[in-house]
Each structure stands twice: as C-alpha cells, then as structure tokens.
Simulated scan of single mutants.
Amino acid sequence: MQGADKGQARELDGKGLRIGIVQARFNQAVTDRLAQTCLEELLAHGVERRHVRHVTVPGALEVPVALQAMAESEHFEALIALGCIIRGETYHFELVANESGAGVSRVSLDYRLPIANAILTVENEAQAWARAEDKGRDAARVALEMAKLLEELS
C-alpha cells in the first residue's frame, strides 16, 4: 500500500504549533508535576512558550468543559488534559474517572482536535507519583505527534 504509515512515529517538531493545557488542581502537587514535565517536553521539541496556553480548573470533571472552550476558539493544533484521580472508598472514583475520560474523548471527536489525555487514574498516591513525570512527558509527545498526523491527513 503506497503511502502507508508503517507504524513509525512522526518527527516531534513543535515549531509553530499552538498547544492548550488544561490542568485539574485536585491533587495539585501531582498535577503540578505533570504540568511541569509536560511543558518542559513541549519546549524541548520546539513549541514556543508563548504558544502554550495553560489553564487550571478545580478537578477532573471540569477539564472537558475547559477543553471544549479551547477547541471552540480554533486557536490550537492540539490540547492536553492533566489530572489525578486517586481511588477512595466510594464509587466516586469510578464516576469521576469514567465521566472525565468520556468528556475528553467527546471533545476530541466533536472538534476533530487531538487531545492527549493524561488524567491519571490510580489506586494510591504512590502510584500517582510513580507516573507523574513520564505521563507529563508522554502527553506532550502524543499531542505533538497527533497534531502532525492530522495536519498530514488534512
């Protein structure tokens, strides 16, 4: 098949890309670390600091509506969702995890805009800290790769 992707990652060149980040403040120490490593990775791949819009919201359930507002602005090539949901003793964990994830996916599909979902869903704080740095960097790379892919497909 001519022009097939063949499973190779795209060059992560963020030059000229405008990226929106929505960070939940709940479990803020963890989400601050996610945001820090995400921003560092974006900058390392050529995204200019002035082309990154970083906003915070109270918690993971509020992330999708902020993403939607960013998507409606038509100002961004990709968005990033950051949050941390730690399992508690009630069903609330499942509700927040499922609904925030569904909301992020819906915004992405409705606006045909890549959104890297780095809302951690973990059993305890130790798991959150073990994942924070890598997931922040991963989110940045996913956003850049998907922005380039959609650019190619347009």
Score class of each variant (00 low, 15 high):
17 L>C: 06
19 I>P: 06
22 V>A: 09
22 V>W: 03
26 F>V: 05
28 Q>L: 09
29 A>T: 10
31 T>K: 00
32 D>Y: 00
34 L>D: 08
36 Q>T: 01
37 T>N: 14
37 T>C: 12
39 L>W: 06
39 L>Y: 08
41 E>G: 02
41 E>H: 03
44 A>I: 07
45 H>G: 02
46 G>P: 09
47 V>C: 15
48 E>S: 14
49 R>E: 14
50 R>I: 02
51 H>Q: 14
52 V>W: 09
55 V>P: 14
59 G>V: 04
59 G>H: 01
59 G>A: 07
62 E>Q: 13
63 V>Q: 12
64 P>Y: 04
68 Q>F: 06
68 Q>E: 15
70 M>V: 02
70 M>R: 03
71 A>D: 02
73 S>Y: 03
73 S>L: 03
73 S>G: 04
77 E>C: 09
78 A>R: 12
81 A>I: 10
82 L>V: 00
83 G>W: 00
85 I>A: 03
89 E>W: 00
92 H>L: 01
92 H>P: 10
92 H>D: 05
93 F>K: 01
93 F>G: 02
94 E>K: 08
94 E>Y: 04
95 L>K: 07
96 V>M: 12
97 A>M: 11
98 N>A: 13
101 G>F: 01
102 A>L: 15
102 A>N: 15
104 V>L: 10
105 S>I: 08
108 S>A: 14
109 L>V: 13
109 L>K: 14
112 R>P: 00
114 P>Y: 10
114 P>Q: 04
115 I>H: 05
118 A>R: 05
119 I>L: 05
122 V>A: 01
124 N>I: 10
124 N>R: 06
125 E>N: 00
125 E>H: 04
126 A>C: 05
128 A>E: 06
130 A>M: 11
132 A>V: 00
132 A>S: 13
132 A>Y: 01
133 E>M: 08
134 D>K: 12
136 G>I: 02
